[in-house]
Design a protein around this nucleic acid. Structure first.
Lengths: 260, 260
DNA sequence: TTAATAGTGTCTCTGAGACACTATGTG
DNA sequence: CACATAGTGTCTCAGAGACACTATTAA
């Protein structure tokens, strides 16, 4: 807020009362979006290549400056629409990064967001200035810390600024939220099998999960609704297709725990 | 970050390359600190009274603008030192609030922090421009939403800007972290009894806890070290005094689960 | 038929709640 | 002594892991 240092100094009061945002320097404000997806059994992050100094040719998170009349959430949504053509995706604020030297040119404070999307919605393929990098998380659990991102041929990409930290923070956050928030569904198509969902969870957590316990927990959560349809698969018994159901109202004709 | 919109428009590249932060308006950047303590069996938040419009005479969170060469964490620490004379307290970034109309004068984006401290370290008593308000949380669990704050005579205080939302977010955060992060200790003196610690947890969560289970869980966590001393109390058997132990190394001479 | 995975039933183990019981201080 | 709270021991219950078993599809 402003005008908080009351009764300290009359001149400061006058200063704040006559405060004009353009009169003296303050930090620039940007948003950066960690757009994550799961494909090929790994977390993937979308990155764009910088064409200018500093960090020229490094890979950076899509981002942009916050407009004067735009909320932070709106800025993040705008970046997603402009960079990846995405609308109505799951987006949440992550953390705000404001170390003075994080951008060598000028002071830039960045409000980081993370977004989760099914790869089927990422129509754009990799190009010279855009790619989906494969995350390599060098820590387990919720330890946190920077991550590495590998390009298509497996080499580690040079990441711009503090973006390795930002992506690491996003991984830490979704690992922590996975158990109690419906975020795994965001990375899947509208209908999916329990095996698909478990694979998503295992990729995010970076460790295998017990199949029986996972099934029980998911079906007991009330967040899944059986569709009555089955996957079209190869070589084995097809599994029931489920749909994410916010409130968890089971179709009265169909039990959730047992397909009729 | 900056210069992210690559290959869009050569003029934009030129603009970004020659970017001067003072040349055109961007949002002001502030920090606000939710300084919480527990006393009189309730969560208390420290507030300062505004002396200017807008929201004149409303109560606001202590805050201040971020200096150009100062990290966000440093700004929060500076606000705590200036407002409450506190150093070396537990502080963590909470969330960044950036609705365009949250401050009616000009665009102010605020990075909120929360701090936890034992009331014994808050030496300053309430005054005309400073008070400790009692939180009234109108929701349970991690639902979230704005809270009310009552003054000394129990009346609801008028809170400035979106600060009711900010405080509510702080409560939601510490409720969620209480189970797996050592934050209850921050609200107690260096040594304390298990009953004291349970009372803190109950106040934060807003619900009673099972005594036996709480004791087992805390002693099993390895975060407590018995001091061998006992409280000086009135009218009943004194309890063992414990100390928070980061790594949880028990004194080899003393078992943690059993006092020798 | 075989291969492969879906899905069920059941046992065990662990942690939380409940509660009885003993221990140790004050008045 | 009575009284109040500290702290222990143990039973029960619910959820997770483990694993055997049956079910259902493709080839």
């Amino acid at each position: 807020m402003s005008a908080r240092r009351h009764k300290v100094d009359p001149s400061e009061q006058a200063f704040l009362a006559g405060y004009d945002a353009s009169e003296f320097p303050h930090p620039s404000l940007a948003v950066d979006v960690v757009l994550l997806t799961v494909s090929e059994e790994a977390l993937q992050v979308s990155l764009v290549q910088r064409v200018e100094h500093p960090c020229r040719e490094c890979w950076a998170l899509p981002g942009g400056f916050v407009d004067m009349k735009e909320s932070l959430d709106a800025a993040a949504a705008r970046v997603l629409a402009a960079k990846a053509g995405l609308e109505d995706v799951f987006v949440e604020q992550l953390y705000t990064f404001g170390a003075p030297e994080r951008d060598p040119r000028t002071r830039v404070v960045s409000v980081a967001y993370y977004a989760l999307v099914h790869p089927g919605r990422l129509a754009v393929a990799g190009s010279a200035e855009f790619l989906l990098g494969r995350l390599q998380v060098p820590w387990s659990g919720d330890t946190g810390g920077p991550v590495q991102v590998a390009g298509e041929d497996g080499e580690a990409l040079r990441l711009a600024f503090d973006h390795a930290e930002v992506i690491g923070m996003a991984v830490k956050r979704i690992r922590g939220k996975l158990d109690y928030a419906p975020i795994g569904f965001q990375l899947l198509p509208p209908t999916f099998t329990l095996r698909d969902l478990q694979a998503i969870h295992e990729v995010i957590l970076g460790r295998p999960l017990n199949k029986d316990s996972f099934r029980r927990r998911m079906l007991a959560s009330g967040e899944l609704r059986a569709t009555g349809k089955r996957e079209r698969t190869v070589g084995h018994r097809p599994a029931e297709l489920y749909r994410y159901s916010v409130g968890g109202h089971p179709d009265p004709d169909r039990s959730v725990t047992r397909n009729g």
